[in-house]
Simulated assay, not measured.
Amino acid sequence: MPRLAHVALLVREYDEALAFYVGRLGFSLVEDVPQPEQAKRWMTIRPPGAGADATTILLARAATPEQAAFIGNQSGGRVFLFLATDDFARDHAAFTDAGVRWVRPPAVQPYGTVAVFADLYGNLWDLVQFSG
């Protein structure tokens, strides 16, 4: 059965992306494999607590000026990624303490509790604890 294996996220530089996603958000580094023939790295991360078969984020360094133009705006200014949590208050506090920039404050919606943050490039993410 097909499944979504990776979602590519354009980044400027690998190490600054790791510092944010692993250092600030607590994601796990799954793979970091040099690809010297292509002058890049195969680097995947996943949220803390995600299982080994979970979809990972492929940190893809922009290789051309055309690709670089989309860093931080991969979804045209809409929320791009949705990070589900089982404890909104805990993770919101941890992200705040780590210096994450909140774009919209926490709000209770019919589907759960949500707040929007921007990553180091400006991509918008929902931190959401779904109800039910």
Rank of each mutant, 00 (worst) to 15 (best):
H92S: 04
L83P: 02
F70E: 10
L10N: 06
A94I: 00
A93D: 12
A93W: 03
R24D: 02
V33W: 06
H6Y: 15
T44D: 07
L58E: 07
R61P: 14
G51P: 04
Y111L: 06
A54Y: 13
A94R: 09
V22A: 07
V79C: 09
Y21I: 02
R24V: 03
A5T: 07
V103I: 11
G112W: 04
D15V: 04
A115H: 00
H92K: 04
R46M: 08
A8G: 14
D97K: 13
G76Q: 09
A62E: 09
P105G: 09
A115R: 01
Q109V: 03
V7H: 06
L4F: 08
W42V: 01
Q129P: 02
N73I: 09
D53F: 12
V22K: 10
Q74G: 15
S75G: 12
I57F: 13
F70C: 08
S75N: 14
F27S: 07
P2K: 10
A5M: 12
R90Y: 09
Q67G: 04
L58Y: 08
R12I: 03
G132T: 00
G49I: 02
Q109I: 00
L124C: 02
I71D: 05
R90K: 10
P36Y: 13
E13T: 01
F20W: 03
D97P: 03
V30M: 11
G23E: 07
R24E: 08
F82G: 07
A39D: 14
T113G: 07
L10A: 10
L4W: 05
A69G: 12
G112C: 00
T56H: 10
K40F: 15
L25F: 04
L81F: 12
G49L: 08
F130T: 00
Q74R: 13
G26I: 01
Y111F: 10
A62L: 10
A93Q: 09
G72E: 09
R12F: 13
A107D: 13
V103Y: 08
Q129D: 07
E66Q: 15
A63Q: 09
N73T: 14
A5H: 15
G132I: 01
M1W: 08
A68C: 11
R101W: 03
F82A: 12
W125L: 12
A19M: 05
A69P: 06
